[in-house]
Every structure is written in C-alpha cells, then in structure tokens.
Nucleic acid binder design. Structure first.
Lengths: 352, 352
DNA sequence: ATGAAAGCGCTAACAG
DNA sequence: CTGTTAGCGCTTTCAT
C-alpha cells in the first residue's frame, strides 16, 4: 500500500527514469550527453525531459561539483545616495559587461555591496553561486581589495592601476585623460582651470594628476583653490560652481571628473550668465550619450566601454583558467565639441 | 594512517565543528540563528566562521529546500541588433528594478534570452537558481508567455496589458500616453502627425491607438501613409524621415514611439533644414535623461521608472506569496519642452 | 550500453 | 541545549 501520497514536488530525474523505463544513471548520462550511450536512448530521454519541462536541479548539480555559469558584478553601494543605478556611465558599463558576458555564455549576477560590509563582495563566490566577480570601482577599499586577492577570491576590478595592488585591474588611463583634457584647454587659451571631482578616489586622483602635470609642463602652478573636491552628485557640482563664483578664485575653464558633473557645472554657469565656451570652457570625462546632445555639446575624454567590458570578462576568465593576469590600462580619447574652443570633430553646424 | 591526503577542498561545516569542538548540527544551528542554542556557542561559532571566511555552500542549502535570494530579470535578445544594452531607457529600467530588488533584499540575475529559444526564460526558475522572473517586454511572445503562466512559472512582465493575458503585467498606460502626446500636438496646430514606431509590438500598438483616437476625437482621420513602422533603432528612424521627406505624405508633426527615435528624427529633420518646432513639432515617449538636454529639449511622454521597478518587484513577491495579482497600468505624464509649441513646464529660457 | 550504490555538504527530525 | 541520523537530487565509480 501507499503509506502517504508524497507531496507533489517538482519533477525529478527519477520520474523521467521511470517514464523512460531506464535507470536514473542513464537519464543523468543522457542529459549530460555522455558519450557511451545509445544515440536512440539519449534522444528519447532528451525529448521526454523537454516535453515535461524538466531541468536538472542546480543545487544538486553544484553538490556534485559543477560550477554555476554565473559571474557576479559587484559594486560598493551607498544607501543614502543611491547614485549608481541613476548614473548613465555606470549603467552603460554594466551594459557593456553584460554584453561581453552573454558572448562568453555567462549569466550576470548583480550585487550591491554596502560600504560598511565590504567583505560581502566575496559572498557569491564563497557560497559558490558564481565562479568569480567583477568589482566596479575601488573607491577607498584598496587594502580590503588586496585582502580579497590574498584570500584567493577570483576577481578583477574596474578602476585605477595602483602601486601596490595584488589584483588585476582594468581601467582607463586616467592620468593620460586628465592630461589630454588639460592640454586641450591650455592650447585654447585657458589659464585658470578649475578641477571638479573628489581626488580621494583613486581614479579621480589620477585625473587630477594629469591636470596638474599638463599645467606644470606649461610652467603653470595652479593655486590650491582651483581644486574643488565634490562627490559624484550633480547637485554638488552645481553648488560648488555657485560657491566658486561667489567667493572662489577666478577661473576660465572647468575640467570635471565626469560628464555628469560637467553637465551640471555647465548648467550652473549658464544660469549665472556665463557663456560656455566664450566665458568658461568646460571639459568632462566619460563621453556618455547625453554629452553629444548637450547645449553646447560637451568636449570630453572618452572611455571605451565596449573594450572595457570585453577586457574585464576576458581577464576574469583568464584568471580562472589559472593564468597570471596583468592590469590593463585602456587609452582614452579626447572628443572635441562645442563646450571648448577648437575644432569640433564633427556634429551639426553651430546655430546661426 | 591517512589513506590519501584529501584534496584541499574548501572549508566546510565539519571543519568549523571540529575547531569549535561541537557537532556539525550545532554549527548549522548557530549559523542559521536557531533559537534554542546558547548565546555563547552561537557567537563563538559565528566568530570562528567569520574569521575563517566560511560561508555555507549554496548548493547544499538548496538541496535542503532553501530558496536562493535571487530574482531573474530576463529579456528577449536579438543577437544581431544588440540594442538592449545600449538603450538608455532599457538600462534605466534595469536600474530601477535593481534598486527595488536591493530594497527587498534580493540579488538580480540578468538573463538575455535568444528570440528563437524563448522557453529559456524559465530555465533559472526551473533549475531553481531564482525564485521568480521579471520579463522585460512582451514583443511578439504573448502566446508563449501565456504558456509559461499555465505552467505555473512565477513571473511578471513589463509591458502592455493585453486582452487575454493569463499573467500579471506592469506597464505604462500606453494608450493614454499616445493620446496625451497627440492631443498636445493638435492643440498646438498640428494636423498631419507622423507616427514613428512599430505597431506590431503590443506597447507600440497601444500608443498608436491613442494617436488614432485623439485625432478621431477631433474629426481627423489620418491617412495610412502617416503611420511609419520602424524598429527601435535610431538609424531606422533617420532613414524613415528621409524617405517621408522625399516622397511620403506631408506632415507637420512627429510622434515617435520612443525618445531615442524622436531624437533621431529630430536630427534628421534638422539636417534637412526643417526647424523644430517651427516647421515640424516632435514628441517622444519615455523621458530619458538625454531628452531634457537635447536641442531643442524634447517634449515627451514620461514613464515613471521608479514606480515601475518598485511595482514589478512588489507584484512578483506578492505572486510568490500566493496572492492573485492583477495587471497594473501606470499613468504617464506629458512633459512639455521646446520641441513643440506650448509652454515648457520649466527649464532654461529659449535662446534669444 | 546500462544499472546499483556511494556519497557531495548540509538541515531537521528525533533522541537524549 | 546538543548530538545522531537520515536523507535532499544528482553524478560517478564500479559492476555487469
């Protein structure tokens, strides 16, 4: 007799086996396309499984040592600001990584990590939900990221290449970018260039370095007040521009650490009747889609996201394959548009 | 003697148990904060696990019936076009969902589904990698989506509310949006309004319906040639505008099914010396960030993404909790800017 | 070419 | 309060 009707749980291999009149092992082999198995049986079982929408349980497979086809994409998340998911550059970067992961046959597990709980970035790997992690942004966690590397967590980082790093980073050549932007401004008459961005972040620090180096190469030593540390929040940039206009040093150009900041700065300047580029030239960083359509179109330093995504994925997979992976520095390109003097590379003619 | 040095596999509960001088079950209970367990033991074991970076194996937990804290976000993916990850509206929608998922304590598993292999959307659920799925866009799969519902896959869809749907959809009130856009144009003198978008997609069909209804309410019956089916690709919009300009019907306004298309149309018009809005008024749909900064700023129908993300997540969780969930229609708002006549709601003053 | 059987790492009865 | 024990659904020897 039947002791008790077992709960109608989900279909499992045993069910398929019974229906196919074979053993469980045969089903397992059929579904994993084991070589020595009659083609006929294999097909029959595949068919059956498909028609019943049977899929092998991921948990059970993992217990048997199988790796999930999943890569985690993690980023430090600030619950109060919540900027990340609103930031066009960040979203585009995620998109680029997503594209690359699709091509390599992986799923993407998005993971927001609270700043005060940074160690969590390793969780998906430690619990074996993913095979490795792509970390977006170093922020202030250089040491803790190094610690992850020491522990053998497989990951790569989108960010700056730093001196004593024990991990593989992929990122734009920020110093170069800073230099390109600044040299362009200098070449077109700027002499007092405001720097807008938070140099306590490594990538920004490097852009700032480029800014400084380019000026020194021209015999200019910018006064301290021209460096304006602001977080990646548009309002902060607006406020800072107001402040400088009110009682800061005079300036004839702005180099902002991101397009979003540059756009905000431009708006703040225009609201105060400063013409861009006639009174103040503005250069951004990133080249987000919005920038080409701004008014005036924004001159900026482009980061090549498609390459970034591909490279991040490729490095992570290389590392997983046991290779030693070196940091990568991606070249940046200056895109000249209407917010500075000089010849725009293309685009619609200026309004009559 | 030791038969063979077992491979230095990852740490597991037994190791912690041994080090803590307790049984495995005690460790298990400690880590899952089981109530009846001495506080001291609990803490000691937690400490130990933390210091050794031990995490419970997800696969083993799943085998014991635990659900992963993961929601899949799936979308139909066209390998040739690869538009999705470049589309600002789509990325912003993913961002909004990501935000909502964070708030509910879930991870987000991004899954691109090849059109010809649509059944795969259910895979992460069938393999128990996720507890449910948010499907972005119905496209032409209405019947297959209904089939998923019949099979009991837990999911919600971002898209149109359709007549015979067996699933919960969340989406903007596209018909309303279409009407708002069209009425605005009619109120400001437009009489021959081009519709740009592919009405074979359900959402677009509804926007088209609104477009039609508003005109009929004014006693206008638009001729067939004014409906221009184009896919969601900027170049297609440009080309279509060229075509209509060359030998299509005359028109004094454009209602595009997305901002991206509208922006492309605007550029095409301007390239042909048509002034916006003086010669041709243009209205878009979505209100992506770019639109406010376009030249002229784009009048558009806003979709409320934050609410969209929250609602999608909330409905999915409700459905998982066993509730019957009704489709949701989110109101759209017309945002009047410079690409049409009428008073802009705000923004910088028009150029002198 | 197929089946039987032994676990994978953990949780949850069921004992004490 | 803690330990013992029996599986969860599958893969993989080892037999046949």
């Amino acid at each position: 007799m039947d002791p008790k009707p077992p709960k109608p749980s989900r279909l499992q291999m045993a069910d398929i086996a019974r229906l196919a009149n074979v053993s469980i092992s045969t089903v397992s082999r059929a579904l994993s396309n084991h070589p020595r198995l009659s083609e006929e049986t294999r097909q029959r079982i595949h068919e059956l499984a498909r028609s019943l929408h049977y899929s092998v349980d991921a948990g059970a497979q993992m217990m048997r040592g199988k790796q999930p086809p999943t890569v985690a994409v993690a980023f430090p998340y600030h619950p109060t600001e919540r900027q990340h998911f609103k930031d066009p550059f960040f979203l585009a970067l995620i998109g680029a990584i997503g594209d690359a992961l699709i091509d390599s046959g992986h799923n993407m597990l998005i993971e927001a990590v609270q700043a005060d709980d940074f160690e969590r970035v390793a969780k998906p790997y430690e619990t074996r939900q993913c095979i490795g992690t792509i970390l977006l942004g170093q922020e202030h966690y250089h040491d803790r990221i190094n610690a992850l590397a020491v522990r053998g967590i497989p990951f790569v980082v989108w960010g700056a290449r730093l001196k004593d790093q024990l991990y593989c980073s992929v990122g734009s050549d920020n110093t170069l970018g800073g230099r390109q932007a600044t040299e362009h401004l200098l070449a077109h008459g700027a002499r007092r260039i405001l720097f807008l961005g938070d140099p306590s972040l490594p990538e920004i620090a490097q852009r700032h370095e480029g800014w400084l180096a380019a000026q020194r190469a021209h015999g200019i030593e910018p006064e301290a007040g021209l460096t304006r540390p602001v977080p990646f929040v548009p309002q902060a940039a607006r406020a800072e521009i107001e402040r400088v206009l009110a009682d800061g040093p005079a300036f004839d150009a702005v180099f902002a650490a991101s397009d979003r900041l540059a756009l905000a700065a431009m708006a703040a300047l225009q609201a105060r009747q400063r013409r861009v580029p006639q009174d103040v030239q503005v250069v951004g960083f990133d080249d987000i889609a919005l920038s080409a359509e701004a008014n005036p179109p924004l001159t900026t330093v482009r980061q090549d996201l498609e390459t970034a995504g591909k490279t991040l994925v490729e490095r992570l997979l290389a590392k997983l394959a046991g290779q030693a992976v070196e940091p990568v520095l991606l070249p940046t390109t200056l895109v000249v548009r209407g917010s500075t003097h000089g010849e725009p590379e293309s685009g619609r003619p200026p309004p009559a």
